[in-house]
Design a protein around this nucleic acid. Structure first.
Length: 258
DNA sequence: ATGACGGTGTGGCACCGA
């Protein structure tokens, strides 16, 4: 079973690339972030024609998430129960697989703008609510995958220039503590279960020729629950789509489960 | 120190992202 996450930065622009990528990588589940589409404009027919069921939850201009699956997904939940949030950031479903099914959470974590800003405070509140909800969700669904654009670089080795980025947004101690808090629930960073190439990133700024210079951050993650950990066989970042014409600034991350 | 690139919107630049 393969699952993947990709921040597409506008599904309107990136739909052809998503369909091409799925044809090349027929994963069982793909979660998307930053679709930037209201639900009435979501390209459901095109995705279904490619052989995927899809759940989606969007808004105008910003945010927006979707969950594509080969088999129909059940028990969809939008956003974080218990958190009043105007922003469409989370889609959760149960998909067949790994025996009794897997609870899949696709999430677009807030950016946070800068430490001390209102948006940073929102990011902290959002992360608090996510962790509290996950505690219950894990109890109800031991086989769980949390994946998406976390907007957190967990460690210095996830940053091309950790000195320049020290204390900056995506790299603050508060954000990193939250990431560790998620691991504290029993989740594991699938990417770090394996030997990986040094300087592995999932996002490169559009500016400054960052991709050509491989100046990026690893902020897109796949976390698997303790119950699923023994089944994790591989995890990798596919940077090829970043070489497309009009690419997303993020690359997909893929995990393989037994 | 600044802005750089790209997407969206009732646009003609401002905003947001990371």
């Amino acid at each position: 079973m393969k699952l993947a996450t990709w921040n597409v930065n506008s599904l309107t622009v990136r739909l052809p690339q998503v369909l091409a990528w799925l044809a090349e990588h027929p994963v069982d589940v793909l979660v998307l972030q930053e679709t930037k589409l209201t639900d009435d404009k979501f390209p459901r027919a095109e995705i279904e024609a490619a052989g995927y069921a899809v759940q989606f939850f969007g808004q105008k201009t910003y945010n927006g998430v979707a969950l594509l699956s080969r088999e129909a997904a059940a028990d969809a939940v939008k956003n974080i129960p218990g958190l009043a949030d105007e922003q469409a950031r989370v889609i959760t479903c149960t998909v067949p697989g790994a025996g009794s099914g897997v609870r899949v959470i696709g999430a677009y974590f807030p950016n946070g703008e800068a430490p001390g800003s209102d948006k940073f405070a929102y990011k902290m509140r959002w992360l608090d609510a996510l962790r509290e909800w996950l505690r219950h969700e894990l109890a109800a669904h031991p086989q769980l995958v949390l994946m998406g654009d976390f907007n957190i670089a967990p460690e210095d080795r996830d940053v091309y220039d950790p000195v320049a980025w020290a204390g900056q947004i995506l790299c603050t101690p508060e954000e990193r503590a939250h990431f560790q808090g998620l691991l504290g629930l029993g989740l594991v960073d699938a990417f770090r279960l394996f030997e990986q190439p040094p300087k592995s990133w999932s996002w490169w700024d559009y500016r400054n020729l960052a991709f050509r210079k491989n100046q990026g951050l690893r902020i897109d993650h796949i976390l698997v629950s303790a119950a699923l950990r023994p089944q994790v066989q591989a995890c990798s970042i596919d940077k090829l789509p970043r070489k497309n014409e009009r690419p997303s600034d993020h690359a997909p991350v893929i995990v393989t489960l037994a």
